Simulated scan of single mutants.
Amino acid sequence: MRSLKREILASGLSALKGNGNIEPHTYEEVETIANDILEKVKCRPQFGIICGSGLGGLGDLVSNKEIIPYADIPGFPVSTVPGHAGKLIFGDLEGKKVVLMQGRAHLYEGYAVQRITLPVRVMKLMGVSVLIVTNAAGGINPEYSVGDIMIIKDHFNVPGFAAVNPLIGPNDERFGPRFPAASGAYDKEFRELAKQKAKELGYDAFVREGVYTCLGGPSYETVTECRFLRLVGVDSTGMSTIPEVLVARHCGMRVLGLSLITNKCIVEHDSKAFANHEEVLETARMRTNHLQALAAAIVKAIKI
């Protein structure tokens, strides 16, 4: 049986090397991966949490941990970026069964968009119905400060304009409809709950609500790109999250998104300031305890 599983995965994943739009995993392939993982852990998660750059410390809050490195999961994309540990952590968080992704893969690492979103579909077939996504992002909104936490209310899918969308390819109705709506992707009830918990924790001064976008990366945005994003109503920008959210919504999951503003985007030509990944990780370390507390309070309050 084990060798058969490996053969199924190998045949389905052989084309998933490099970028580009290719056929997504079949339902059976995802089901095989999900079942293979569930055979290794006792936890049966209802919540999924994806941790962005430097935010894997959320895993410290999980008790009764069961840990599986991504490298031990056939077909799983393995992150190559500092601040992304590359582990699945199963366990209990505030009385809820969770699976936490300590790091994610990105388009700029050379993975096809269908592959970087594979973990979300695997979560769905493991029983997850609520997905919380976090990321490190640059502040486009001039009123935002480094260290702010932004509750995502909507997104602007720039890669989608160039047909980089994880839902491209044959559609299996067992996952979701051919033409899913993306409006309302970020659950209004969860957003209101997040604002309420932020207030209770005394975080009002640095918790915002706004619009997120992702660009392909790995280069940071130019001045002109930042000015354009500001013009169209974007508040923060990163290099992840949107593909995962699209797949989660396609699967019928409810989604909450949180961005940690780790740097201010440069909007003046000839500025001597430059964005860098070290700044991102340093800000994540500075604010990680607040983000952990907020995420835990939200998980505790959500009723499934």
Score class of each variant (00 low, 15 high):
residue 249 R to G: 08
residue 33 I to Y: 03
residue 203 Y to H: 00
residue 205 A to I: 03
residue 13 L to K: 00
residue 202 G to R: 01
residue 242 I to P: 05
residue 66 E to T: 09
residue 279 E to F: 07
residue 110 G to S: 06
residue 226 C to A: 10
residue 94 E to Y: 01
residue 257 G to Y: 10
residue 253 M to T: 08
residue 143 E to G: 13
residue 127 G to H: 03
residue 144 Y to W: 03
residue 239 M to R: 11
residue 177 P to S: 10
residue 271 S to I: 10
residue 58 L to S: 07
residue 33 I to G: 09
residue 169 G to L: 03
residue 39 E to P: 12
residue 131 L to F: 07
residue 193 L to G: 07
residue 234 V to L: 00
residue 173 E to A: 11
residue 289 N to F: 10
residue 2 R to S: 13
residue 35 N to F: 06
residue 154 D to W: 01
residue 117 T to V: 15
residue 122 V to W: 03
residue 90 F to V: 09
residue 253 M to P: 04
residue 266 I to D: 03
residue 92 D to Y: 03
residue 32 T to A: 15
residue 197 K to C: 03
residue 174 R to V: 12
residue 245 V to F: 01
residue 157 N to M: 02
residue 195 K to E: 13
residue 26 T to C: 06
residue 192 E to G: 15
residue 130 V to T: 14
residue 49 I to V: 15
residue 1 M to I: 11
residue 200 E to A: 13
residue 227 R to P: 10
residue 149 I to C: 00
residue 299 V to Y: 01
residue 303 K to D: 12
residue 282 E to L: 14
residue 251 C to W: 04
residue 300 K to A: 12
residue 74 P to G: 07
residue 58 L to N: 02
residue 22 I to N: 02
residue 241 T to I: 14
residue 262 T to H: 02
residue 54 G to Q: 04
residue 139 G to Q: 06
residue 37 I to Q: 07
residue 229 L to M: 15
residue 253 M to V: 09
residue 161 F to T: 11
residue 108 Y to E: 09
residue 111 Y to W: 04
residue 49 I to S: 03
residue 21 N to H: 11
residue 73 I to N: 02
residue 74 P to E: 04
residue 96 K to T: 07
residue 255 V to N: 09
residue 73 I to F: 01
residue 86 G to H: 00
residue 12 G to A: 13
residue 81 V to M: 09
residue 70 Y to R: 01
residue 146 V to P: 06
residue 161 F to G: 05
residue 288 T to P: 00
residue 247 V to A: 10
residue 81 V to C: 08
residue 277 H to F: 07
residue 135 N to K: 02
residue 211 V to E: 00
residue 256 L to C: 09
residue 223 V to N: 01
residue 95 G to P: 13
residue 116 I to P: 11
residue 293 A to E: 15
residue 123 M to S: 05
residue 265 C to F: 07
residue 293 A to N: 14
residue 165 N to G: 02
residue 193 L to F: 09
residue 163 A to F: 09
residue 226 C to G: 15
residue 108 Y to A: 12
residue 205 A to R: 10
residue 187 D to Y: 01
residue 160 G to W: 03
residue 137 A to F: 02
residue 94 E to L: 02
residue 49 I to M: 09
residue 304 I to W: 12
residue 42 K to R: 14
residue 2 R to I: 13
residue 46 Q to K: 12
residue 202 G to V: 05
residue 58 L to I: 15
residue 173 E to K: 11
residue 261 I to F: 00
residue 187 D to I: 08
residue 193 L to P: 13
residue 185 A to N: 08
residue 227 R to W: 02
residue 298 I to F: 02
residue 217 G to R: 02
